[in-house]
Amino acid sequence: MKKDFYEILGIDKSATPEQVKKAYRKKAIEYHPDKNPGDKEAEEKFKLAAEAYEVLSDSDKKARYDQYGHAAFENGGGGGGFHGGGMNMDDIFSQFGDIFGSAFGGGGGFGGFGGGGGQRRMKGSNLRIKVKLTLEEVANGVEKKVKVKRKVQAQGVNYKTCSTCNGSGQVMKITNTILGRMQTASTCHVCGGTGQIIESKPPQADAQGMILQDDAVSIKIPAGVTDGMQLKVSGKGNDAPGGNSIPGDLIVAIEEVEHDSLKREGENLHLDLYISFAEAVLGTSKEIETVGGKVRIKLEDGIQSGKILRLKGKGIPSINSYGSGDLLVHVNVWTPKALNKEQRQFFEKSLTDENFIPHPEKSDKSFFEKVKDMFS
């Protein structure tokens, strides 16, 4: 079971964005690979801290995490969720390297991930798509295969060391000030900080050595997702230029298609069931639709319009695996609008019949009590 993000950073849910950032920087410096060479446990804690910060520093992700926990960012395994099984070092230093400041040579990196020289691995831009799901797919989970047009590095692109920064990714500038000569470093304007420039490329590639390519991507969507929720498939966005770059991510926005008869309210579902006056009087059984298929329910004789039948566990599964919601069947007795002569005479005779005069019992709840029970 994954450890709580707040516990990882040593903060509580009321922490301000500045407190979140301060707590992450403290943990990141404590477990930084430069301070713990060869220590796999420290490296894992370093990654977990970055993963926690990625969520808790973003107000939208934090709100979803507070509501759904880790399940909000899971995608059934594989490349799913916001993290796809954990962040890697390239992600961490490309996104949060500036937080380390000058603690590790200014670049925040180490070894092959940046070193003290400042060269950084470029990460490609993210792609965004919208996936439509039926209510049945939301309830049961589904694997969707989509075609994505993304930028990838063309075959045959060759790189050479940038002569402007000599492969460091940074250029040094010395300025004379009243305090003396000051040296500052900035990202190389020629290579963009990668330390490499294109030496040769095929004719179909653009100036950055990229071509557009259609890729088939499989997305595992867990049961219980909500309209507007976003999932992330790592590494399926655009490539970045440079021989040492990493691709961006594919952001998948969920759009829920409205069902013909079932209406969703959180994890519960609502169904309006219309029956005839005769069926209400005599009782009947009805076949109704659920997200798991059709089921038959029994209506007792004398059932009243407005009666709510609760089918336990026939709603939408909780994305946190806390069980499923219920299906609430709202019984509506349909009053006929046109009667023939014989039918009219029958009801006219019934006007004074004791059995047809309303006699609500104390156990019969009012409309407002039913609404209160429904939302309790």
Rank of each mutant, 00 (worst) to 15 (best):
D90H: 09
S94Q: 14
G84I: 10
G114S: 09
E137A: 12
F93R: 00
Q119L: 15
Q119K: 14
G84C: 09
R120T: 15
G85K: 11
S94M: 07
G97F: 14
N126Q: 08
H83F: 11
V131I: 14
G107I: 07
G111F: 09
G112H: 01
G114I: 11
G112A: 15
V131T: 09
D98E: 13
H83S: 09
L127I: 13
E136G: 13
M87P: 00
I99Q: 07
G111V: 07
N126P: 04
G112R: 10
R120G: 13
G86R: 04
G106S: 11
F100M: 05
N126A: 13
I129C: 13
H83Q: 11
G112P: 11
S94I: 04
N126L: 00
G85F: 08
G85I: 06
G101L: 15
F93K: 02
M122R: 12
F110S: 09
F96C: 00
G116P: 00
D91A: 08
N126E: 14
K123N: 02
G124C: 03
N126G: 04
G86F: 05
G115D: 07
S94C: 08
M89W: 01
V138A: 04
F104R: 00
Q95K: 09
Q119I: 13
L133G: 07
H83Y: 13
G107W: 08
S125C: 01
G124P: 03
S125D: 12
S94R: 06
M122H: 05
D91S: 10
Q95W: 08
A103K: 10
G109L: 06
G124R: 01
A103D: 09
L133V: 09
G115E: 08
M89A: 07
G112C: 06
G109H: 03
M122E: 07
F93P: 01
G106N: 10
F104K: 04
E137H: 03
G84E: 09
G107R: 03
S94F: 12
N88D: 15
I129W: 11
G115N: 12
E136F: 12
K130W: 05
G101R: 14
N88E: 02
M87G: 00
L135E: 09
G111M: 09
G105Y: 13
G86C: 09
R120H: 10
G114P: 02
A103E: 13
D90F: 10
F96M: 01
R121E: 04
G108M: 05
I129N: 03
K132F: 10
G117I: 15
M87C: 03
G114F: 12
G97D: 06
M122Q: 11
F113G: 03
G112N: 14
M87W: 06
G116Q: 12
K130N: 15
F100Y: 15
